[in-house]
Design a protein around this nucleic acid. Structure first.
Length: 971
RNA sequence: GGGCGGUUAGCUCAGUUGGUAGAGCGCCACGUUUACACCGUGGAUGUCGGGAGUUCGAGCCUCUCACCGCCCACCA
């Protein structure tokens, strides 16, 4: 006997253990012979934190698909695993070290630090996988992979080497986004551009040798508005501290104002006067003559636009900052930005001699933080009188500083200002790989759901830039590249391979290094010849291989053959670039086939006010907490019900609570069935039942099964959820069980047997349809009620109903009848409430001039009607009795003799309201049917439908007006 | 600057080929019944953001305006 309420916390752990013990989630478990494969790879959670709402949503949806397909008999694999999450994990461990008061990673050393990170990985992985299990995720845990495990690392090495050999990976000195906090390069995608309050300063760059020119400014009509003699060129900048690295000043070729001085030199007005550098004034299409002064300082090593200008114009790029902050010791988070540094010049045009001659960063600025240096530079220039000035309100001359919003790049993890830096990095030629990846979406081999996301995909892919994949971190896949004594690069899957290649290379080439290598080999051994690249790969590099690396690639495993390509990838839209696009590229390149045919993009989870959840806002809802309080099933059902496409998911706790109540409702329905000895009957054939009520519920169940299936096929999780919700609560509980009570309470006999068998049969159907959404409670009920020992399988492997209209068709007549009964009861209830008939009072029901069919129906449903509508007697008459209230159900009229009980005014109001509604409807229908255009142009069926509606409405109106008349006579 | 999405009941949102609006929660009233108060029964509530157009007919298609989100982008 079931308890009165369902206790998820007592059930879920046990049920999950049962599934695991039975190997229920193993690839192919429960599959029919010759089943087709169905595979989903999990977006691997990072080994940093714990399950958040996004995980809960995404993994619920995947689990729904996987459980559904498994029940449909597919050979299902849900491939689990975790991601090493380079920066994120390193960050967590470094923070932990600091909190423990432990030495930092540099003091610790690379090896010890990495060992420490592995400990973190073990701890975190166990935790997050455990949380996925609490959610009910039915992954094949025996196949759990980690992006840095042996097999996946082998895949990474092979991919790197092959792409390198194909010329699709290369090393180069380029301007990259440098994160001064983590001291590593990051990719464009890891940069967030944020508008912040900034300043723009205007400075005078004196012309070399005190030269002067006539500066003329004109308005749009060509009238001269300013004419003066100048010995400088005015530039505007938001980053004065980079002036020391300027390589030129650029103006637009069409800019008449600066024509006289193009090609001449000007002086950077910072630093000791004897050491100031002269730079050329050049032309380039980049400067906008209408912005600022129209002249732009070009700092190729610290600005992406300037870098492009410098490349075009052969202008040298001077890097001003170190890639290591050094020991500053003040500990402030934003103070760890790269410091202004020793002279480092990166420019192809400059000779060694020239570089040495330049003292880029004066002593007084060395070691300063970027932002400190900025203040100093501004102060120094202003003091020297080289700032462009303006007059303030009091008539004083002051330096011109415009406060203006500027877009500033921040590291998405570090939240510090990113510094463009000229460094040596590894890049993937993304453009080449993107072409087939775009083609595959264009021709439909891979589809986005909702489809609109392909626009986002294309937009990014069409403008794709080289992908910077090297990271100056320790945690990750170390790049398989080795450098020879002359910095020659040798890429191979292991050191031995690189060394072989290197020895071969050096011995085959006459030159200074041949003898050196020979000498080394003889006296020291091969270990000293090569140095391995220190860097590791971007974490997304290994993620990009996930759909095939987890299946065993590069080994030609059976799983790889069977499950690749996979079926669906489910993720959030903010991951399309980072991950989806790159999986497409790598999958197509290495497997020659797309990694999945469908990309399902789910909504983003927000709080109930629509705010993004974040720790700082304190509005984070913890899914584990919800599971503790309401059960995993309730959380899952909420996720499914809210998963409407293309939107944000706003989660309110009341919703979860509501679905917990739903679980209880189901529980009690099963409890009721159990109490009434509703049990499965061997050989029960739903198409052979007789009672209209039973035929009806079987038809409704079949309709629901079709709806749920159809919705899932279209990834409309919310539609699927609401179909099963409505069926269980509003159809099975509210009507079927209530209408069945007279039979179940009545005398034994064929009808009672049939009703019991039907109740049990439909209950099982409900459990099956509900299982993907609420796996725990459904499995628990499946295993506890009604001779559970005789079940052929656990519910997780039960057979999903084949969609097909047979049962629905068989039930169509029964549906007409039961719908009629439901309407009759509802109408009586409605009349009772509106006329304030006391709930406890039993009243009489008179069927007026009922035809044969209606008499029959009423007869069959009499007991139920009496019970549910609180009716004392049911009688027949040819006219509405004096003083009776009338109720209309379809074409039938009923009377409720309520003389004395009735509140005449209330009844008049009720009828008046109903009549108003009718008049409105009739008016609309008449107008429509009088419309020539409608009659001639609308489809026949539509016209016919409107005609029928009009006839019905008119008949109803006639009956109503009769009733109103009688009411008048009464009063 | 470019692109995408949104604006429907008090709240959160459905509404799939155009046939005059739905759910959950909340609210109000009443609670008799061999499951369930995490319940039952009934009820109220919308010029579907504004305007124009196409159409016999528009929440749905077109244009336009307003407001709100998000993404991408180099204006010093």
């Amino acid at each position: 006997m079931l308890d009165k309420t369902y206790a998820p916390d007592e059930v879920e752990g046990r049920i999950y253990a049962d599934w695991e013990k039975a190997g229920a989630f193993a690839a192919g478990a429960g599959a029919q012979a010759g089943a087709r494969p169905y595979a989903i790879v999990i977006p691997p959670p990072n080994v940093t934190g714990s399950l958040h709402m996004g995980h809960a949503l995404n993994n619920t949806l995947q689990d729904i698909l996987v459980r559904w397909k498994r029940m449909q008999g597919f050979d299902v694999l849900w491939q689990p695993g975790t991601d090493h999450a380079g920066i994120a994990t390193q960050m967590v461990v470094e923070r932990e070290l600091a909190e423990e008061g432990n030495v930092d990673r540099r003091t610790m050393g690379r090896e010890a630090f990495i060992e420490r990170v592995w400990q973190q990985k073990e701890k975190s992985e166990a935790s997050i996988l455990g949380q996925l299990k609490r959610l009910g995720a039915s992954c094949d845990w025996s196949r759990t992979r980690f992006t840095m495990d042996e097999g996946l690392s082998a895949a990474v090495l092979k991919v790197f080497v092959e792409l390198y050999r194909a010329g699709l990976i290369y090393r180069g000195k380029r301007l990259v986004n440098w994160d001064p906090q983590f001291e590593t390069a990051i990719s464009d995608l890891e940069v967030e551009n944020v508008e912040v309050d900034g300043h723009m300063w205007h400075f005078k760059y004196p012309l070399a040798g005190g030269e002067t020119y006539e500066y003329v400014e004109k308005d749009d009509d060509g009238n001269v508005t300013l004419r003066e003699t100048r010995d400088y060129i005015s530039i505007a900048t938001t980053r004065p501290e980079t002036m020391l690295g300027d390589g030129a000043v650029a103006v637009h070729p069409s800019d008449e104002r600066y024509k006289p001085i193009v090609g001449k030199l000007c002086e950077i007005p910072v630093g000791p006067k004897q050491h100031r550098r002269l730079i050329p004034i050049i032309t380039d299409p980049y400067p906008d003559p209408d912005f600022g002064s129209g002249a732009v300082k070009i700092t190729g090593a610290h600005d992406f636009n300037d870098y492009a200008v410098a490349k075009r114009g052969g202008i040298p790029c001077y890097r001003l900052m170190d890639t290591r902050a050094g020991m500053r010791g003040d500990g402030a988070p934003y103070a760890q930005a790269a410091a202004l540094a020793q002279t480092i010049v990166e420019g192809a045009q400059m000779s060694e001699a020239e570089i040495d001659a330049i003292n880029l960063v004066p002593d007084e600025y060395r070691g300063l933080d970027r932002f400190e240096a900025r203040e100093r530079v501004v102060a120094d220039i202003t003091a020297e009188g080289l700032a462009v000035t303006t007059t303030d309100e009091e008539g004083n001359e002051v330096a011109l500083v415009e406060a203006r919003p500027i877009m500033q790049p921040f590291g998405d993890r570090s939240h510090v200002v990113i510094e463009p830096m000229l460094t040596d990095q590894w890049f993937v030629d993304a453009e080449a790989l993107a072409k087939p990846a775009m083609e595959a979406v264009r021709d439909g081999r891979t589809k986005f759901v909702p489809a609109a996301w392909d626009k986002t995909y294309f937009n990014w892919m069409e403008n794709i830039e080289p992908w910077c994949i090297s990271r100056q971190l320790w945690w990750g896949h170390r790049i398989p590249a080795w450098y020879g004594p002359d910095d020659e690069i040798f890429v191979a899957e292991d050191e031995e391979g690189a060394l072989d290649a290197a020895i071969q290379h050096y011995l085959a080439h006459e030159g200074p290094w041949k003898a050196w290598v020979e000498e080394r080999l003889e006296n020291y051994g091969p270990g000293d010849i090569l140095t391995r690249d220190e860097d590791v790969l971007d974490t997304w590099f290994s993620s990009a291989l996930w759909p095939f690396s987890t299946l065993g690639w590069p080994e030609g495993t059976a799983e790889l053959t069977r499950y690749y390509k996979t079926d669906v990838l489910s993720t959030a839209h903010d991951i399309i670039f980072f991950w989806v696009a790159r999986m497409m590229m790598m999958g197509l390149h290495f497997m020659d086939e797309v990694p999945f045919h469908t990309v399902y993009i789910h909504a983003l989870v927000r709080d109930e006010k629509g705010q993004k959840m974040s720790k700082s806002k304190g509005n984070v809802i913890d899914p584990l907490d919800l599971i503790d309080r309401f059960g995993a099933d309730a959380l899952r059902f909420t996720m499914a019900a809210l998963a409407a496409q293309g939107r944000d998911v706003k989660i309110a706790e009341s919703r979860v609570q509501g679905y917990r109540n739903f679980a209880t409702k189901l529980w009690n329905a099963c409890r009721f069935a159990e109490m009434n000895h509703c049990a499965r009957v061997d050989g029960f054939d739903p198409s052979l039942v007789n009672l209209p009520l039973n035929r009806w519920i079987i038809g409704e169940a079949a309709t629901t099964a079709a709806q749920v299936t159809e919705a899932l096929e279209a990834y409309r999780f919310n539609d699927a959820a609401s179909a099963i919700y409505r069926f269980i609560w509003n159809t099975y509980c509210d009507w079927f069980l209530e209408l069945a009570k007279p039979v179940l309470n009545g005398p034994d006999g064929a009808g009672k047997d049939e009703t019991r068998a039907t109740a049990a049969h439909v209950r099982d159907e409900m459990l099956i349809l509900l299982h993907p959404f609420m796996p725990f409670i459904s499995e628990e009920l499946w295993g506890r009620v009604d001779n559970a020992a005789a079940r052929e399988t656990m519910l997780v492997h039960a057979v999903w109903p084949e969609p097909g209209g047979v049962l629905t068709e068989l039930a169509s007549e029964a549906k007409t009848e039961i719908d009629w009964v439901i309407e009759l009861i509802s109408t009586i209830r409605s009349v009772r409430t509106e006329l304030n008939v006391p709930a406890g009072a039993k009243i009489d029901l008179v069927a007026v001039s009922a035809d044969e069919a209606s008499r029959h129906r009423l007869d069959r449903a009499e007991e139920a009607v009496m019970r549910l509508a609180r009716i004392e007697t049911v009688t027949h008459a040819n006219a509405v009795p004096e003083g009776a209230v009338q109720a209309v159900v379809g074409t039938d009229t009923f009377a409720l003799p309520l003389a004395g009980v009735v509140d005449v005014a209330a009844e008049r109001a009720r009828l008046g309201k109903e009549s108003d509604k009718l008049e409105k409807e009739i008016g609309g229908l008449e107008r429509k049917l009088a419309n020539e255009g409608f009659l001639s142009k609308a489809p026949e069926a539509v016209v016919e439908e409107q005609r029928e509606r009009l006839v019905e409405a008119q008949a109803m109106r006639a009956r109503l007006s009769d009733a109103i008349e009688r009411l008048s006579a009464l009063s």
